[in-house]
Amino acid sequence: MVIRIVKMTFKLEKIEDFLSFLEENKHKIRNFPGCLMVEILQEIGQPNVIMTHSHWESEQDLENYRNSELFNFVWSNTKIHFEDKPEAYSMLSLDKL
Rank of each mutant, 00 (worst) to 15 (best):
K28C: 10
Y65V: 06
V2T: 13
E87W: 08
I44Q: 10
E59S: 07
F18I: 05
D61Y: 02
V38S: 02
M91N: 02
E69L: 13
E23D: 06
Y89I: 10
I44V: 15
I3V: 15
K28V: 08
F10C: 00
L94N: 05
S93D: 00
V2M: 15
G45N: 07
E16Y: 05
S93W: 00
Q42L: 13
L70S: 06
K26P: 08
Q60P: 09
K14L: 10
H55L: 02
P33K: 15
P47L: 03
N77R: 12
N72E: 02
S93C: 00
F71Q: 02
N64E: 15
E83I: 02
V2L: 14
D61K: 12
H27L: 09
I50H: 08
T52G: 07
K14M: 08
R66L: 12
I50L: 15
F73I: 05
S54M: 11
L70W: 12
T9A: 14
P47H: 04
E23M: 03
I50V: 11
K79F: 07
K28L: 13
E24L: 00
S54C: 10
N48T: 04
Y89N: 02
Q42W: 15
M37S: 08
K26L: 07
P33H: 06
I3L: 15
I40L: 14
E57A: 06
E43W: 15
N31V: 11
H53C: 13
E87L: 05
W56D: 07
F32S: 06
N72S: 12
I50W: 15
M1I: 12
G45S: 06
G45H: 13
I3C: 15
I40Y: 14
I29F: 02
K11T: 04
E16W: 11
K14R: 07
I5N: 14
K96A: 02
E16I: 00
F21N: 00
R30N: 07
F71N: 09
T78M: 03
S54K: 14
V74P: 01
N72C: 03
F71E: 04
E59F: 13
E69W: 06
M8E: 04
I5D: 10
K96V: 00
L70H: 03
H53G: 03
